[in-house]
Amino acid sequence: MNYQFNLSQIVFLITDKEQDERMVVGVFIEPNGVSYKLACGATTSWHNEIEISSSKNILKTFE
């Protein structure tokens, strides 16, 4: 199975106004898709592929 994001890759949440860097630290495969565990500092959270981007959206920081 191909993954859009790789372990240890730096990514961004498309809805995050601060556009903080997050690192992919886990991948969970389900019948309906792939979820990624992202780390931002000491905090981790799970996200679906559609919530994640490999590029920073600096315009989001001006909202």
Rank of each mutant, 00 (worst) to 15 (best):
T61E: 14
A39P: 03
H47W: 07
G33N: 05
Q4Y: 07
E49L: 10
D16W: 05
E49Q: 14
K17A: 15
L59N: 15
G33S: 06
I29T: 09
V11N: 00
P31Y: 09
G41A: 02
K37T: 13
R22I: 02
S54Q: 10
N48Q: 14
V25R: 09
F28W: 11
K37I: 09
S55D: 10
T43N: 14
M1D: 08
T43A: 11
D16M: 04
V34G: 01
I58S: 07
Q4D: 13
L13R: 02
T15G: 02
E21L: 04
K60S: 10
Y3S: 06
L59A: 15
Q4R: 12
F5T: 02
I50N: 12
F12L: 00
G26K: 04
V24L: 06
I10H: 07
E18R: 11
S54I: 12
Y36C: 04
P31T: 09
C40W: 07
N57V: 00
E18V: 10
L59Y: 15
V25T: 12
S45F: 07
R22G: 02
W46G: 14
I14V: 13
Y3G: 03
S8T: 06
F12Q: 00
F12V: 01
S54C: 07
K37Q: 10
Y36Q: 01
L13E: 02
F28D: 08
H47Y: 09
I52V: 05
S35D: 05
I14L: 08
E21H: 07
L7I: 13
L59E: 13
Y3V: 07
G26R: 01
Q4C: 10
I58E: 13
T15F: 12
Q19V: 02
N32Q: 11
D20E: 11
D20W: 10
S45G: 06
F28V: 11
F62T: 06
Q19A: 00
F62E: 05
F5K: 00
L7A: 05
S55Q: 13
G26W: 04
I52D: 00
V24K: 01
I58D: 13
F12G: 00
E30A: 11
G41N: 07
P31G: 12
N48F: 12
E18F: 11
T44M: 07
E51T: 10
D16P: 02
I10F: 07
T43S: 14
K17E: 08
Q4H: 10
S53W: 00
N2Q: 11
I52C: 01
W46R: 15
E21Q: 14
I29F: 06
G26C: 02
Q4W: 04
E51R: 11
M1H: 09
N57F: 04
G41R: 04
T44F: 05
M23Q: 15
N6L: 13
S8D: 04
N57T: 05
Y3M: 09
R22S: 06
I58H: 08
N2P: 04
K56P: 04
S55I: 15
